[in-house]
Design a protein around this nucleic acid. Sequence first.
DNA 1: ATGCCTTACGTGGTAAGA
Length: 259
Amino acid sequence: MKIATFNINGIKARMAALTDWLDEAQPDVALLQEIKSVDEAFPREPLEDRGYQVETHGQKGFNGVAILSKLPLEDISRGLPGDDSDEQARWIEATVVGKTAVRLCGLYLPNGNPVPGPKYDYKLNWMERLRQRAQALLDDEMPALMAGDYNVIPQAEDAARPAAWEKDALYLPETREAFRRVLNLGFTEAFRATTQGPGHYSFWDYQAGAWNRNDGIRIDHFLLSPACADLMTACWIEKEVRGREKPSDHVPVWVELDN
DNA sequence: ATGCCTTACGTGGTAAGA
């Protein structure tokens, strides 16, 4: 089963690029972030016509996540547990029923800038809620993965110019520590389990010719539970998508599971 | 460099992103 995570930066602006990519890349499952749409306005029919079950968790204007799947999805859950007052649409879960069922979590972790401030406090609080949900996933026997736009640069090698990010919410020591606290529960960061070294990015800013200069950062990640990591056969970044017509500023990241 | 682009909302600039 081929699963991709892709921050599309707006479904309305990205529908043509998204459907072209789906037709060519043929993911079994696509976890989408920043759909920037309410559920009622999400263009589900062109996706359903392509054989996808479509589950969304959107809000007006910003944020929003979705799962597209060619295999049946069950037990869909919307919203990250731990704060009933949180109205931001950044988390969706479902079980994909293949040969082996896998729990899928799609996430759009808060950016957190500017630092310091309430947005950074929200990011760190959200990451602690993520850690708690991650522990609960481990306590279940079903293989699980959490994939999406983490807005975390894990290591210096994950940025073309790490010095430029030193005071940024994506790279501050406290951010990276919170990310490691999740990993240290026992999750495998899929890309770094398969590829070492610098120069691998998943985001290039629209500004200042970042793509042409390959001034990128790696912030879109797959975290796999031990049972899920045992099923992984490959992980890769589809960099080429960033050079297409009217691209998102992120590119798809993939895992293949033998499930 | 608190913004060099892009998007949403909505028709005029803001807010937000990373």
